[in-house]
């Protein structure tokens, strides 16, 4: 399937292994990525905090660019925070025709228009709803046997439920569980799996921010997880990049590898760990991969 692909900023900046691994995994899942390289940052909720109309207009521009991608079935992102920020703007744009035309007036100078009703799915949602767990399972070459994976959902992709379309038919707040299972891994539940990683306040209250990250990582360690998987690069920054500092904040050793969702999928589909950029993480995923043989789960 062809998708208008929004990678976000961080996946091309401080977590390049996310964008890179998505590019490797996509062809294996028959996903054709048409990158929206002309679009700008979603604002991650901060532009909306500053000026709602500005955030809505910038994101409407992205949506309009996605709607111009010929033959694409939907728009796909690989960042929970982007999903959350975009869904918030889209909710307002779709809710009110008068407001939408006001925003479109600003876009008109560029010849763009946002038409209501765009479908925008995070890679996680696309995996479950478009590709399907059975088809995903069928493509697995290296099942994640014996690998104990803790899902880390974070916030933006599970709350608020109504806006994100989470209901009994679409239990999107359980999709990481389902994907881990479909890849042959074992799901490890722990207290912090749907809590905040702390990233939004890292520059305002570093201690509280990293206490959140550190506690969730500690919970996962106590639950005996080998690694965590997250659909959000910002969560990845606090959980992986800042993990050494989080360790000192909570006063315990953590050593918890954090995988991006496409990396976990890629491992199961038979890709090489280095191809997926797993060697680029701050916390070396040595509990996930036996680097000498690259056999998934062998070290568990």
């Amino acid at each position: 399937m062809k998708v208008a692909y929004w990678p976000g900023c961080v996946s091309r900046g401080f977590t390049p292994e996310l964008h890179g691994s998505m590019a490797k995994v996509a062809p294996l899942l028959d996903i054709e990525l048409v990158e929206l390289d002309r679009a700008c940052c979603t604002g991650a909720g901060v532009i909306a905090e500053h000026n709602q109309e500005l955030a809505d207009t910038l994101n409407a521009r992205t949506f309009a660019l996605a709607q111009q991608v010929d033959g694409a079935e939907l728009m796909m992102n690989i960042c929970s925070t982007c999903q959350g920020a975009q869904s918030e703007c889209q909710e307002r744009l779709d809710a009110n025709a008068e407001y939408r035309s006001h925003v479109n007036e600003t876009l008109a100078a560029e010849g763009l228009t946002y038409e209501t009703g765009l479908t925008n799915k995070n890679f996680l949602w696309l995996l479950v709803e478009e590709i399907g767990l059975e088809r995903l399972s069928a493509k697995v070459k290296h099942p994640l046997t014996n690998l104990k994976v803790g899902p880390f959902y974070g916030c933006y992709i599970v709350r608020p439920r109504d806006r994100l379309g989470i209901d009994a038919e679409h239990p999107r707040d359980h999709y990481l569980h389902q994907v881990i299972g479909a890849l042959g891994g074992t799901v490890i539940e722990y207290a912090g799996m749907r809590k905040c990683c702390g990233f939004p306040i890292i520059t305002m209250n570093k201690e509280a921010s990293l206490k959140q990250a550190g506690r969730h990582l500690g919970d996962a360690v106590d639950a005996d997880a080998d690694c965590l998987v997250t659909p959000c690069p910002l969560c990845h920054l606090n959980l992986d990049f800042q993990q050494p500092i989080a360790e000192s904040v909570v006063g315990r050793q953590l050593d918890m590898p954090i995988l991006h969702l496409p990396q976990l999928v890629g491992l199961a589909l038979g890709l090489d760990p280095k191809e997926l950029g797993l060697n680029r993480h701050m916390v070396r995923p040595s509990s996930v991969i036996d680097w000498s043989t690259s056999v998934v789960g062998a070290a568990a």
Binding site: K2, V3, A4, N51, Q52, E53, D56, A64, A66, Q67, Q68, V69, D70, G71, A72, E73, L74, M75, E91, R92, A95, N96, A97, Y99, H102, T113, E115, T116, G117, L118, T119
Partner: peptide, 28 residues
């Protein structure tokens, strides 16, 4: 600043949810 508060305005009534595939504004 132009702000839309959905708590106050509510949502437009749309007859049926018709998901629009991306790309339809182009050459489909």
């Amino acid at each position: 600043r132009y702000e839309l508060n959905l708590y106050i305005t509510g949502y437009d009534e749309v007859d049926e949810e018709t998901p629009v595939p991306v790309g339809t504004t182009a050459t489909n």
